[in-house]
Amino acid sequence: MYVVLSFFAALSFWPFYWIFKTSLEAGGNVYKYPPSLFPWPATFANYVGAWKTVQLGGYYLNTIIIAGIGTFLNVLFSLMVAYPLARIDFKGKRIVLFLILLPMMIPVQNTLIVNYLTLKKLGLLNTYMGVVLPQAVTIFGIFMLRQAYLSVPKSFEDAARIDGAGELYIWWRIITPLIKPDVATLTIFQIITWWDNFLWPLVVLSDSNKYPLAVALVYLNSTFQVNFRYTAAGIVLSILPVIILFLFAQRYIVNAIAGGVKY
């Protein structure tokens, strides 16, 4: 079993390693066969060239702004919607939950025109908020946090009510801290999603100076037609923050998945 898993792990890892190796090569044919396993002679000149050629610093800032606003709104709104669906009894709750889950059957591409026309009426085209608002809350986030809220024993809530706590206090200070691993996991997923977001920013933003990294690298790919190593260096620079984030935060994902077994 370990041999089989190691084989598939190597297959998955090879494209990333090939991009990284290519970004460090000084010259020669990129598509040579058989491919070399190690870049020699290795150089960081491609990273310097890619950074200067497309001014990646500005696109990094755009991506951080979009990912920061989008993640904050998504986690906050998901918490606000998930709590009453999990902990409060009200008439029609099942219908509301069904209507929230129903759009999951609609492909995202089918909503582009409606969202675009709505943002046009609101005057939010070519703005960061125009990129963020249509995905400021997601069905995945609502359902995930609802399941997390359902796992909290009702005794915590009852004890807080006996002490005179209100609903808002119970939500924010009593119940929500008990699902921190799930909130952290959703935050990580949202950061990665916003960081790699490509299609919607390309549709909404007309000013290339506002593009996030994912769009900028593809849009400016013509700049690198004679030097694919610059493109490889740009790809490595774009995915490096996500890899670092995952390595430091993977324990939260493991905890959330382990806790999800009882759901």
Rank of each mutant, 00 (worst) to 15 (best):
F77V: 15
V137P: 03
F189C: 04
M1E: 12
S238H: 12
A216E: 04
D158N: 11
W194P: 12
T223Q: 15
P15T: 00
G234W: 10
L79N: 07
L61R: 03
A249H: 08
V203N: 02
N74V: 10
V132L: 13
W171A: 03
M144T: 03
L76N: 13
S222G: 15
L101P: 00
A9C: 00
N74H: 07
R229Y: 07
F72W: 01
K154L: 15
I100G: 08
V183Q: 09
I19Y: 00
L186I: 02
K154R: 15
L73A: 00
L122M: 14
Y230E: 05
V242Y: 10
A50H: 04
P201Q: 04
F98D: 12
V203R: 06
N227W: 14
R146G: 09
D158H: 11
N110F: 14
P39C: 05
I235Q: 09
T118I: 14
T53H: 09
F98R: 14
Q190T: 13
Y211T: 02
L217G: 05
I88S: 00
L61E: 05
F72T: 10
Q147K: 13
A214N: 05
K262R: 09
A159L: 08
Q225N: 13
S155I: 13
P153D: 14
I66T: 07
F246Q: 09
P241G: 10
L245I: 06
K93T: 02
I179D: 01
F8C: 02
I174S: 10
A232F: 12
W51T: 08
I69P: 02
L11W: 05
E167A: 07
T111Y: 12
L150D: 09
V132H: 05
F248A: 06
I239H: 08
A82W: 02
I239K: 00
Y116H: 05
T118A: 12
V254P: 02
D207F: 07
L56T: 05
Y116V: 10
I139A: 07
K121G: 08
L178I: 02
P212M: 09
G260H: 06
A45T: 13
I179H: 00
Y17F: 09
L101R: 10
T53F: 10
I113W: 10
Q109L: 04
Y263W: 15
I65S: 01
F13Y: 02
I244V: 14
S23H: 08
S208A: 15
V54K: 01
F248Y: 14
W51Y: 13
P103T: 03
K262M: 07
M80Y: 03
L220N: 06
L122F: 13
A67M: 04
L133G: 05
A258Q: 10
I95E: 12
G130M: 07
D182R: 00
V261E: 08
V218C: 13
A42F: 11
I174Y: 11
I142C: 06
A258S: 09
P84R: 00
K180R: 09
I188T: 03
T53W: 00
P39L: 06
A214T: 13
I64T: 08
Y149K: 08
K32S: 12
Y263E: 14
F143A: 01
V54L: 08
S155F: 05
Y2D: 00
S78W: 08
I253G: 01
L5E: 11
G141Q: 01
F72Q: 01
I65A: 07
G57C: 11
I179W: 06
D182L: 11
V218R: 14
